[in-house]
């Protein structure tokens, strides 16, 4: 394993644990600021959407199409594994038959 991979694990573990501990001891104070709380609540969704947009920025039209299928499956089912399986199946079929 590379030192960068080691560092990634250590950094992610240390920062995540810090967030949990800070939350326990100071979370009540942080959530007293309504704007900060709203921003924190909106952050995960926006971040994920930005990650999706980045991964699609240089993707083929097949991947865009399969992503659209995955979005529809996700909206209807709200199920992680089903979304991944059906998204992947549609991508596989597109690549095989077109």
């Amino acid at each position: 394993m590379t030192s960068a991979e080691w560092l990634l694990i250590i950094l992610l573990a240390a920062s995540t644990f810090s967030v949990r501990v800070i939350g326990l001891f100071a979370g009540q104070k942080i959530t007293e600021y309504p704007h900060l709380k709203k921003a924190l609540d909106a952050l995960p969704g926006c971040l994920l959407v930005a990650l999706i947009a980045t991964s699609l920025s240089a993707a083929s039209s097949f991947i865009w199409f399969a992503s659209a299928i995955a979005v529809i499956v996700a909206i209807l089912s709200n199920h992680v594994i089903l979304t991944m399986i059906l998204g992947f199946t549609s991508l596989f079929m597109l690549q095989t038959y077109f």
Partner: peptide
């Protein structure tokens, strides 16, 4: 990016 997603634990731990 990973820890930003975990900021929700501020509220959970609180």
């Amino acid at each position: 990016a990973g820890v930003a997603l975990n900021l929700r634990y501020l509220g959970i731990a609180a």
